[in-house]
Structure formats: C-alpha cells, structure tokens
Simulated scan of single mutants.
Amino acid sequence: MKIGELARATGTRIETIRFYEREGLLPAAERTEANYRIYTEAHVQRLAFVRHCRSLDMALEEIRVLLHFKDSPGEDCGAVNALLDAHIGHVADRVQELQRLEQELRRLRAQCQAIQASSLCGILSELAQGAGSDQASSAPGATDHVPGASCPCPRS
C-alpha cells in the first residue's frame, strides 16, 4: 500500500508517518521504480503500536525502548516494567500539577461573581497584578499546561 492508504488505514496524517520514519520508529518502506513508498501489514501494526503508545502520552524515547523489546521477544521485560513504572510516576506528578492548576483557576474564578463592566472584573485585575511577577511564571502548569506540550512530536 502507498503512504496515503497507510494514512487512511491507520487514521494517521502523512506528515506524521514520515516523521516516525525519520525518527526510526517505523522502518523505511520499500520503494517502487517510480520511487513511491510501499508499506506492508507490518507497517500498519507497528504504526498502530506507536500510536497507542503516543495516546498514552509516551515520549518518543520511551517508544523506542518499547519497540526494542517488542523486536527482541527473547529479552527479559524488566526494563519494560521499569519504564512503565516511571511513566506512571510522571503521569501522577502531572495529575497533581493539574489539580493545583484547577485549584488556582477556581480561586481566580471566585474573584468575579457578578456580571459587570470589565474594568471592575476581579479576574482581569488579579491576572494583571500577577502578569509581571514570579508567581505567574511559577504557577502550576504555567508553561506546560497542554498535555505533551514539552514534546514537539506529532500525535496523529
């Protein structure tokens, strides 16, 4: 199948498939005489594996490690367990950060209880006061409030 067919079969953008190839997560496809990539069912399965890992918010390096073990079925899976344990820890940390962010947003929301002129809005006033302070840049989730924002890699 050609790249467009692989994209449709897996619900993955063509640019993402090429990115995963460049990153070594997908093996290079064979090429036709006309230089078209030709993908196999093995590519479909591997791409599905990578996408599932990405849906669990795993980083590319984590996926590389998992693929190594997937490609080496005789190896001990202790490192896989350790990787997942570490990832669970990162997720738990993020959950706590998001809970602190939620509390801060609820506290901020409580600053304005009535519909009034925006010049009197407690939320806007509080945001303006904290805009230049260290509090704004160190607030929970201030720089990475979007899941996966620290990783520039495509998800789909």
Rank of each mutant, 00 (worst) to 15 (best):
M1N: 02
M1W: 02
M1G: 09
K2P: 01
G4A: 07
E5L: 06
L6T: 03
A7T: 13
R8W: 00
A9T: 12
G11T: 14
T12V: 10
R13S: 05
E15C: 04
E15Q: 14
E15W: 01
Y20G: 03
E21Y: 06
E21L: 06
E21A: 04
R22A: 10
R22W: 03
E23Q: 15
G24D: 07
L25P: 08
L25C: 06
P27A: 14
P27V: 10
P27D: 12
P27R: 13
A28E: 14
A28M: 04
E33N: 11
A34C: 05
A34V: 02
A34Y: 06
Y36C: 00
R37D: 02
I38N: 04
Y39W: 03
E41Q: 10
E41G: 07
A42C: 02
A42V: 05
Q45W: 03
Q45V: 01
R46I: 04
A48H: 10
F49E: 05
F49L: 09
R51M: 09
H52N: 03
R54I: 01
D57E: 12
M58F: 13
L60S: 05
E62Y: 08
E62K: 01
I63G: 00
R64F: 09
R64V: 06
R64G: 09
V65Q: 05
L67I: 11
K70V: 08
D71L: 07
S72W: 02
P73F: 11
E75V: 05
D76F: 10
G78D: 14
V80F: 04
A82K: 15
A82N: 08
L84T: 03
V91C: 14
V95W: 04
E97M: 07
E97N: 08
L98H: 08
E102M: 15
Q103Y: 07
E104W: 10
L105V: 15
R107D: 15
R107W: 11
A110W: 11
A110L: 10
A110Q: 15
A110S: 14
Q111E: 13
Q111H: 13
C112M: 08
A114N: 09
I115L: 09
I115T: 12
Q116D: 13
A117M: 12
S119C: 12
S119D: 07
L120V: 08
L120S: 06
C121M: 01
C121R: 05
G122E: 07
L124T: 09
S125K: 14
S125Y: 02
L127Y: 02
A128W: 08
G130P: 00
A131V: 08
A131S: 15
G132Y: 03
D134H: 08
D134E: 10
Q135R: 11
A136E: 06
S138P: 00
S138E: 09
A139I: 01
G141V: 01
P147I: 10
G148P: 03
A149H: 09
P152L: 04
P154S: 09
P154E: 13
S156R: 15
